Simulated assay, not measured.
Amino acid sequence: MPLESYIIAKLCKELKLKDINVHTQDFEYEAADASRIQDFLNYYKSRKLNHIEKSLLIKLILESYNDYFQSNANDAEKNRNSEIVPILSSEYLQHRDILDYWACGTEKLEDCFAITPLVRDFLSQVD
């Protein structure tokens, strides 16, 4: 089993995620769960994770946040300074490519993700 598939299987087991094909390229989309953001953050903060685990988990967390913001647009601003900002700040360089994906370059916001304004704001503060 390739390393990333092994790590996906490990995350699914330890986080009690629904059955996911461990060979999927869409782990974060299939496993995202807006109701479990805090669980994912707690896991990230409480474990010694390698680079691949951190990247997969950050993708899962951001996808879950995006799902949350899509269905709770009015509450999005309240969660702006959540626990994810310190994680991203401390490991910014490791997650830069992931953040660039969510920032959507210079696309119009209406053509972007629900969390794109928050990601762009974060990037403008750290760049």
Rank of each mutant, 00 (worst) to 15 (best):
P2N: 09
P2A: 05
P2S: 05
L3Q: 03
E4S: 06
Y6N: 09
I8E: 01
A9F: 02
L11Q: 07
L11N: 15
L15P: 06
L15M: 13
L15R: 00
L17P: 10
K18T: 13
D19K: 14
I20F: 08
N21V: 06
N21C: 03
V22T: 14
H23P: 04
T24C: 02
Q25G: 11
Q25K: 15
D26C: 09
F27K: 10
E28C: 12
E28T: 03
E30V: 13
E30A: 02
A31E: 00
D33K: 02
D33L: 07
S35F: 04
I37S: 00
Q38N: 06
Q38W: 10
D39S: 11
D39L: 15
L41T: 10
N42A: 12
Y43M: 07
Y43I: 11
K45L: 14
R47D: 08
N50Q: 13
N50P: 02
I52C: 07
E53A: 08
S55K: 12
S55A: 03
L57E: 04
I58Y: 03
K59R: 06
I61S: 00
L62E: 06
E63A: 14
E63S: 12
E63L: 04
E63D: 09
S64L: 06
Y65Q: 10
N66P: 07
N72M: 02
A73F: 14
A73N: 11
N74F: 11
D75G: 03
E77V: 03
E77M: 10
K78P: 00
R80D: 07
E83D: 13
V85D: 14
V85I: 15
E91H: 10
R96G: 01
D97Y: 02
D97E: 13
D97V: 02
I98R: 01
L99V: 09
L99R: 00
L99K: 07
D100M: 14
A103R: 00
A103T: 05
C104L: 05
C104D: 02
C104F: 03
G105P: 03
T106H: 12
E107Q: 12
E110D: 15
E110S: 15
C112R: 09
C112A: 13
A114P: 01
A114M: 11
P117E: 05
L118Y: 15
V119S: 04
V119Q: 05
V119R: 00
R120S: 03
F122H: 04
L123P: 05
S124M: 09
